[in-house]
């Protein structure tokens, strides 16, 4: 008995059993890995977040402060959002994450551009990449103004 059936290729019944055993173990391992991979996926809130946010400052507060600094980016759906005012007074909102290596950009009111200090990337106030390493324009959001003219609330939206 033993010895004559050492090589599985000579014993189709035994090799079939081994294959069934291996297959059943693979199914078991798969059923263990399934909940684990699902568990590793970030929760919904951190993946998508909110669709709208009211900016922490009104239209009349959107100007350089005493030191010439533009209002800092604020959180929108887990990411920084920067508000800029173009030369014709239009307010625009961008995802402040630089398209180059995920740094956070800032608006430079005197130069009239959006600048990333990590690698010197420059975007214009429409979010277009003009110089430096950034490969793509900044992701733009929709801006809705609501309230008294001149003192409107700024609502940033992704819809």
């Amino acid at each position: 008995m033993e010895g004559s059936c050492d090589k599985s290729d000579k014993c189709p019944r035994r090799s079939w059993l081994v294959r069934v055993l291996v297959g059943m173990n693979l199914v078991a391992i798969g059923s263990l890995l399934y909940p684990i991979t699902r568990f590793l996926r970030p929760r919904r809130g951190t993946r998508h977040g909110t669709l709208n946010v009211v900016a922490p400052f009104r239209v009349d507060q959107l100007r350089p402060d005493a030191d010439g600094e533009w209002p800092a980016p604020f959180e929108f759906a887990g990411k920084p959002c920067v508000l800029v005012r173009t030369s014709d007074g239009e307010i625009k909102a961008f995802n402040a994450i630089c398209t180059h290596t995920d740094c956070t950009v800032k608006c430079r009111p005197e130069e009239g551009d959006i600048f990333c200090s990590c690698h010197g990337g420059v975007y214009d106030l429409n979010g277009q990449n003009v110089s430096g390493p950034p490969p793509r324009p900044l992701e733009a959001y929709k801006v809705i103004l609501r309230g008294k003219p001149g003192r409107e609330e700024i609502i940033v939206s992704r819809t």
Binding site: P35, R38, R41, G45
Partner: peptide, 13 residues
């Protein structure tokens, strides 16, 4: 509490 309710299979793990 959050990962038990929000994360897939959090309660199970």
């Amino acid at each position: 509490q959050a990962f038990m309710t929000e994360v897939d299979f959090g309660w199970l793990i």
